[in-house]
Design a binder for these strands. Structure first.
Lengths: 240, 240
DNA sequence: CCATAAACATGACATTAATCATGTTTTCAT
DNA sequence: ATGAAAACATGATTAATGTCATGTTTATGG
């Protein structure tokens, strides 16, 4: 937990290699300069927290490298993971725009580089660039659709179906470890996986074993290799 | 199913008594005129459908009177109700803004009067009134927060807790039938209630009976009277 | 007003998944 | 390298909830 001074990184938005994936991808040069002007970019270690549920947002986080889980803590002390942010994703802008406190906490899953852009600069861009504002609106509306879908699945599908669907989703969203590999490029603990699926850790462990002996997946350490995507999709009960 | 010609109603946005509750509340006179120009307003009967999941949105629906359930159909044929819209609420603008097909269906729960504003007029207002656009953005962001909360509760709470929480929510959102009454002003079938909570109809029936014999609620036909809000909140496991 | 269907209600039973217990393996800090 | 802690794994048991069956009440159209 040593707070290294050296964790500060020098990263200019203009030269950010993750920008292409982000909502910032089409911003003009001068807007990027505004963003960079008061920006700080920090190296985070696994387990460090970006912000806590119930606190006031002061700006947005932009992920340059690494993955971050965004979750709500239940009264039983169990986390429900809402989504996992990857390079190019923004965090915290939703609360900023709705003028509410953070509705969830965000914790780094793996070694990450994350920039922080103060609220004021973010709003400056928002005000002077209507196209950007519209793009963001569209993104939020899409996110809402995704969240509604997740909610419906949580209500209607069995744990087995949800786990299968989650593995498919992870494969599509976080891609593969290198070319020609079928190993999903994200290392999740069984507990985190359970907190995405919305079930107990033991249940995830059992179902992963089943999927493995059924030849649907293989387990490479903490990572999952998809062996039979078609049957996995079938398990998830897409079209049925 | 008789499609009465008489179902067409003459309602001007300028004089709409539900406008105060809506996102249109602060629109200037000339914007209201644009909205009214190609608007149609129709009387719907219980069970009629405004739009179906998977179809293309052509405009927005604005509820003048009545209530509408918005739901997703699961592969098992069971509905998951995402929310229940009330007078002043908009429907369909989310899909319009994200340029997607409808992600859910909408069906009228009780005798309703609902206006339809074509896509083009809606976008006209959106483009010429930045304040309205911002207001809408804020609303969508809030909705996203609400949906995330619902998802977390679905994953973490028991059916009993969720039913209690739902009754509390209905009370807060749809208010009481007249003054001094504790009867929630919405008539939901047990099946619809089950589809909000995310459980089986029989389970809802059983739990309502329990709540009743425990003196938490009383059942006035299809409507629910809240007898002991405090204990109901406790059942819902808020702060615990 | 009556017939019929839909909604409501309750019991019995099956199934799913959570919880508890315990042991093994991996990870990590010293 | 080593000991402790965390993560993983598996079995046994229990609790919660879904499903099926059946009967009653309520709503509704002709």
């Amino acid at each position: 937990m040593s707070t290294r001074k050296s964790s500060q990184i020098d990263l200019q938005c203009q030269f950010c290699q993750s920008r292409g994936e982000s909502h910032f991808s089409e911003l003009p040069e001068d807007d990027l300069e505004v963003l960079s002007s008061h920006k700080s970019c920090v190296a985070y270690k696994k387990g460090q927290t970006l912000f806590y549920e119930g606190t006031r947002p002061m700006g947005i986080f932009c992920i340059n490298h690494g993955k971050v889980k965004v979750f709500k803590m239940g009264s039983n002390g169990k986390e429900q993971i809402l989504f996992i942010a990857k390079p190019g994703d923004f965090l915290g802008y939703r609360s900023l725009l709705s003028e509410e406190f953070y509705g969830a906490s965000a914790t780094v899953l793996e070694q990450a580089a994350i920039c922080f852009i103060p609220k004021s600069d973010f709003f400056t861009i928002l005000n002077r660039n209507p196209a950007f504002f519209q793009k963001l609106m569209k993104a939020v509306c899409k996110e809402l659709g995704v969240m509604e879908e997740k909610m419906a699945q949580l209500a209607q599908k069995s744990v087995r179906e949800r786990l299968a669907a989650t593995i498919i989703m992870l494969k599509e969203t976080y891609g593969m470890e290198g070319d020609g590999s079928d190993v999903i490029d994200i290392a999740l603990s069984r507990e985190d996986l359970a907190n995405i699926v919305g079930t107990a850790t033991e249940t995830v462990i059992r179902l992963l074993s089943e999927f493995k002996s059924d030849g649907l997946i293989a387990l490479k350490g903490k990572k999952i290799e998809v062996i039979d995507a078609q049957r996995l999709i079938h398990e998830a009960d897409f079209y049925a």
